[in-house]
Amino acid sequence: MALDKTIVAKIAMLARIEVPDRELEPLAGELTRILTWIEQLKEVDVTGVEPMTKVAQMKMPMRDDVVDDGGDRDAILRNAPQPAHGFFAVPKVVE
């Protein structure tokens, strides 16, 4: 699969990574090479093989419906750059 500049620009936008125009072309080349390398896996015949979703044979652990966490606002907000009145505050984002 070959990626072009437009797709790289879009991926960068979705990931909120600023990529200067002049780097788009080289990045497209690099990413294409990575994808091509991984695509070699497609050559393996997996007919009849169940997709592997886990490396250890275990079932998903579950919790009971019990409140045993939360209630410590100061701890949650401690690393916030700009807490205000018990809220996280961020530059205005209005839809």
Binding site: V66, V67, G70, R73, G86, F87, F88
Partner: peptide, 24 residues
């Protein structure tokens, strides 16, 4: 439910902001 889908923080409506938040 009493607790959240993937954490043990409470779900009740109308609590003080950020008082029902776990690190998850």
């Amino acid at each position: 439910s009493d607790a959240k889908l993937f954490s043990g923080a409470a779900t009740s409506f109308g609590a003080e902001p950020n008082t029902q938040v776990s690190t998850v």
